[in-house]
């Protein structure tokens, strides 16, 4: 009798079970912490601005309305910068992917004479760089100021992405396949297009997404190289809106400013949502690719 009770107790208060419960609770808390600010912003974007300012939007929307989104889509600055961001992201990512493949494929070939010195030249740039000012001056001297290429060309290849793409090619394209094709008189470029690329869709999706996220979220490049407002991407315009919300906030005593303040408050959250939306929508689809990408970098570096 006594023995039985003891054994049961041991199963219930086993330190491992306790640790597991603790882990589950902790992780659930972390998830809530991660999601909470996002949910509040999403709720605020469809709430009554008065309720936001009074601090009543704590989780769910208060006084639901889509007016803020109507205002945002009617705002020319925002729609134009949205289209700019889309354009920069599409063109930039296309350039990135083409350039990365052009670099990674030849360098993945063991029969490329001069492969090691070339890799050295390329990886050295990961550890040492000319810094912000000389790079800025190079772009300026090339006459790229206020041109889309100013934010695309200086980052045309990310060396990190080049390295993971190269190791993907090395590990996933059987060299027998290549030898056979080349002996049959297939040219290298044809082999790349017809055989290598169709076999490498995973890595192409991964690096496209890495690059696209970077372009969509870019803020510093555009403010460095663009002075014309009509060139601004969405992130820069969002920043301007946030700043004017702040300055209006500091001068709420004025009646005119106060209505302006409500106007800005209304579109602020909707713009934040729109500035994050493309990435958040794409997110579930690309997640598993992303994980693979980083793991590959971790293992094969």
């Amino acid at each position: 009798m006594n023995l039985k009770v003891r054994r049961k107790k041991k199963i219930y208060f086993n330190s491992d079970t306790f640790v597991m419960w603790f882990i589950y609770l902790l992780l659930a808390f972390v998830s809530v912490l991660m999601l909470y600010p996002l949910i509040v912003v999403l709720s605020s974007s469809v709430s009554d601005p008065v309720a936001i300012i009074e601090g009543r939007v704590r989780l769910l929307p208060v006084g639901f309305s889509l007016e803020s989104y109507e205002k945002v889509f009617a705002n020319k600055d925002i729609t134009r910068s949205f289209m700019n961001s889309v354009r920069y992201t599409l063109v930039g990512t296309a350039v990135n992917v083409v350039m990365t493949i052009l670099a990674a494929y030849p360098l993945s070939r063991k029969d490329l004479v001069g492969r090691n010195p070339l890799m050295m030249i390329i990886t050295f740039t990961m550890f040492f760089s000319g810094g912000m000012i000389p790079s800025f001056l190079v772009v300026r001297n090339l006459g790229l100021m206020n041109k889309m290429w100013a934010i695309i060309l200086p980052g045309a290849i990310s060396t990190y992405n080049l390295i993971i793409t190269r190791s993907y090619f090395q590990n996933n394209i059987p060299s027998e396949l290549q030898d056979a094709a080349l002996i049959d008189g297939c040219s290298n470029s044809k082999f790349l297009l017809k055989v290598v690329l169709p076999l490498s869709l995973t890595i192409i999706v991964i690096i496209s997404m890495f690059y696209a996220v970077g372009h969509w979220n870019a803020y510093f490049g555009p403010i460095m190289y663009f002075s014309r407002k009509n060139m601004y991407p969405l992130q820069v315009v969002l920043r301007d809106i946030l700043m004017s919300a702040q300055s209006a906030d500091m001068a709420t005593s004025d009646a005119v400013l106060s209505t302006r303040f409500f106007e800005i408050e209304r579109i602020k959250y909707a713009t934040i949502v729109i500035a994050s939306l493309p990435m958040v929508i794409a997110y579930p689809f690309i997640m598993r690719y992303f994980e693979k990408g980083v793991m590959m970098g971790a293992i094969k570096g």
Binding site: M99, Y105, D111, V113, L118, G130, P134, V138, I157
Partner: peptide, 28 residues
């Protein structure tokens, strides 16, 4: 493999112009 080197041409130009020229420009 001449076409492999053709592929590398724009890549090397990129590294030269946007990575090594700025390094050279550090002297400012």
């Amino acid at each position: 493999n001449y076409d492999l080197y053709l592929m590398l041409l724009p890549v090397l130009l990129f590294y030269l112009i946007f990575r090594y020229v700025p390094m050279y420009g550090i002297q400012i």
